[in-house]
Amino acid sequence: MSGSSFEYSRATDLDDALAKGGRCNATFLAGGTDLLQLWKSGLAAPQNVVDISHLPLADISRDGDTLVLGALARLSDVSAHPDVKTHHPMICEAILASASAQVRNMASVGGNLLQRTRCPYFRDRALACNKRDPGAGCGARHGENRHAALFGSAAGCVATHASDLAVALAAFDTEITVRSTIGERRLTLQELYPLPSATAASDSSLAAGDMITAIRIHRASRFAPRSIYLKIRDRASFEFAVVSVAAALRVEDGLIAEARLAAGGIAPLPWRLRGSEAALIGRAPTEPAFLAAGEQAIEGARPLEKNTFKIPLLRNAVVRALQSVRGGS
């Protein structure tokens, strides 16, 4: 199995990378774990592969109460980093629930956020997919849609977002630094992942030539004692989420002062559960509040023929995640 031919070049520095990446039909190579799969499947056919993997953008550091991840930091380096383990355990859990050790040793955090959907209709060129081939139709909508989204879908696409890390980051105040030849800008995670257009052709708001250079997670350490990334999947390891829940609470004087909840596997983007959060605030961290949060999470779900099971699964996953963090660590 092999994809189309391309020219390879190694970026000498960031400006060189941005100049080369801004050319027509160029793509950046970081960890390569998604790009090579897409290329081998004929889903990516770049003419120029610009290798950025050697640029000095892999630092992991803390700036006050902000965790700063260089975009080229490997997943395994982030999850093994003492500061991340201590202050952001949910990020470690999300990463360790992702892929395999081999893939985590290669994959970058920036690339992880930009990975393409695992919808089988997208990944197989023999099947109809608007995301891959706008106008071709969505085979999943009336086909094998067990994996499909419950929320946020565009008319022409029911795919879900695949990243676990993005779900954890969606629960926190996360800022993405993006560079291009035009300059630097900072996006919230919501700005990186807007609700999809009708065909959902792109998975993020980034344009060709844009590069994520850093991820900043602000003031999240206060949630460290009560946070979890709960991932439900079809096998115990090395599998994408059917449903996942990132949950973080801050309890003050026996009442929930702050709640952060996001879910994966149910929408084309990491799905913040603001209704569930609101249902928890000011209440005791006990069953009635958790059940209310679970009910709020499924409000407005729009299932297809084969994914209705995800509705109770999501509700129960929210409840279980909250049950497991209530006592704190």
Binding site: Y8, R10, L29, G32, T33, L36, Q37, V49, D51, S53, H54, S76, S100, A101, Q102, V103, N105, M106
Partner: peptide, 21 residues
């Protein structure tokens, strides 16, 4: 995982590694 090799002691999937990199 049949293609697993070590690079600087860390395991990777060599089928997803572009040699030039």
């Amino acid at each position: 995982g049949a293609c697993t090799v070590l690079v600087a002691g860390r395991r990777i999937a060599s089928c997803l590694a572009l040699a030039a990199s």
